[in-house]
């Protein structure tokens, strides 16, 4: 008899606990896995020529989430790793993938010709856009986004390498900088953050 009562009490406690845990988790706001920019920062608009001669203007993208990366085609390791992860994150969004635009702006305009950039970025996803421009245009964009970029001469066959900020900038549908993704962030985590941003706005 007492054993039965004890079991009933335990069962009751378990139910109460599960219900509370449910409320607790439901009440939690979404925790971004990238670094949240709070409040969102308006981005400075820019316009650069694409390989096909058309102008790409950031403000024309409003309504889409723009993932902006600064890299260079000569970079064999970190840039392809990042672009591949962005492609996988985008793919994971399924039918919402069309609401994402991935951009790579070069940090190496000397070596990155427009058609070469386009060929490079589209190997990861046909929708990716690679952009270059003249050095003054690029310098002003780098500075607007706080991008550090430095050429380092090497004695080897690579000629020079470029140190650069490795974060991905997430610009929301209203043109505000909302999030950044650090290098090495799992693509599943990026996709979760992007799906939340797409749903919540």
């Amino acid at each position: 008899m007492t054993r039965k009562l004890f079991r009933q009490i335990v069962n009751g406690l378990i139910i109460v606990l599960v219900v509370f845990a449910g409320f607790y988790f439901l009440a939690q706001p979404y925790a971004f896995q990238g670094s949240l920019i709070e409040p969102p920062l308006p981005t400075a608009d820019f316009s650069l020529k694409q390989a096909d001669g058309k102008n790409f203007r950031l403000s024309d993208q409003q309504g889409k989430l723009v993932l902006l990366y600064f890299g260079y085609t000569f970079c064999p390791d970190v840039c392809p790793t990042t672009l591949y992860d962005l492609a996988r994150a985008k793919e994971r969004l399924g039918e919402n993938a069309s609401e994402i635009q991935v951009l790579m702006i070069t940090v190496d305009p000397e070596r990155d010709a427009p058609d070469q950039l386009e060929k490079y970025v589209t190997t990861f996803d046909p929708s990716f856009i690679g952009l270059t421009g003249d050095i003054t245009e690029l310098e002003s964009i780098w500075s607007d986004f706080g991008v550090y970029r430095k050429k380092n001469e090497t004695n080897g066959a690579s000629g020079y390498l470029v140190d650069h900020t490795s974060r991905v900038y997430v610009i929301d549908r209203n043109g505000n900088l909302r999030l950044t993704f650090p290098f090495g962030m799992e693509f599943e985590a990026m996709a979760d953050d992007l799906a939340y941003l797409l749903d919540s706005e």
Partner: peptide
Amino acid sequence: AQAVEIHISMMDGEVMQMKP
């Protein structure tokens, strides 16, 4: 390839560097 080198990518704060 035309040349082959051993490199390392490493983070220096927010900046990614690659060094032979």
